[in-house]
Write a protein that binds this DNA or RNA. Sequence first.
DNA 1: TATTTATTGATAATGATTATCATTATTATT
DNA 2: AATAATAATGATAATCATTATCAATAAATA
Lengths: 165, 165
Amino acid sequence: MRARMRMGQAGWWCGRIRDCGYRMTLPRQALLDVLSRTDKHMSADEIYFALNKYYPNTGLATVYRNLEMLFKAGFVSKLDFGDGRSRYEIIRGPKGVNHHHHLVCTGCGAVIDYTDFINEEVELLNKTQKALSKKYGFNITDHFIQFSGLCNKCKNKKGTQNAGI
Amino acid sequence: MRARMRMGQAGWWCGRIRDCGYRMTLPRQALLDVLSRTDKHMSADEIYFALNKYYPNTGLATVYRNLEMLFKAGFVSKLDFGDGRSRYEIIRGPKGVNHHHHLVCTGCGAVIDYTDFINEEVELLNKTQKALSKKYGFNITDHFIQFSGLCNKCKNKKGTQNAGI
DNA sequence: TATTTATTGATAATGATTATCATTATTATT
DNA sequence: AATAATAATGATAATCATTATCAATAAATA
């Protein structure tokens, strides 16, 4: 069952990747598998290590190359939470589009994906997007929303720790 | 007139800086002056060069240090437009709070600050902020909104150029 | 199967940011 | 105003994420 599911996913990815004029390779597939299974916002480095646990000898450069490719093709988004490295997450995959916004703790760096309230937000955003497109002549394809502040733990502490991003 | 204005601004900054427990210094004042006069989103490097034109021998490290300090104190925001370097802009100064959102061209990197539609956005954002605060126990202090797509020039071209950020 | 070409892994190079440290400037104290 | 305490500076070395290079390999095509 799981095997079938994964086969199906692999097939979907293979199709999309080839649509874009690229080839499906083992490292590429492994990276997509790692990225598909996590709900974290992983850095290239973290993906590199996760990958090498079950698929050794994948180069770090390959990880960067593929992330950049997937980003430019619009499958993956590249996020900056201010810790000096980019973080990645799948936004368009076999299961459809995964759209959410972020809530970031400036104390410990924790990031929460929220999908609540998105509908209302999206309605206004679409309106704004249309108006901006018209006024500035842009062809707007994406938006990015993020709230930041102190999480439950951090708002009562003086020092800051580091939580899972 | 301009001199008086600048004096006034310097005084305001001096007060705020000292409120935060820091000292007002010449390089710090010069940096604030550069940042106050531009409507661009300057990188540390660009600020460093602009600064050295009329106030030589300011070190690059000093620029970084002060930008970080101003950022942490909430006077300056630190932006990532995906070109590998942070960019800065004053958000709270002698003239008040300068709140706007960004429209970024993924083709040439051009950034437009827009304030249109912000009122409507802010209303919804406040509502969302409240709901998020409650649900996730956050003390939310800031938000960040950005639209991206292709600008007028880029949407008809194949290759991409580099415009002023 | 042979050929073409994208992709890979290893590693060097780049470039932004941070850390170090002796010196200087600012503030508080006398 | 002189002095002491300490924050800030400038120069530069160190760090670290990301990119470029290049020979070897794997995937697509004929």
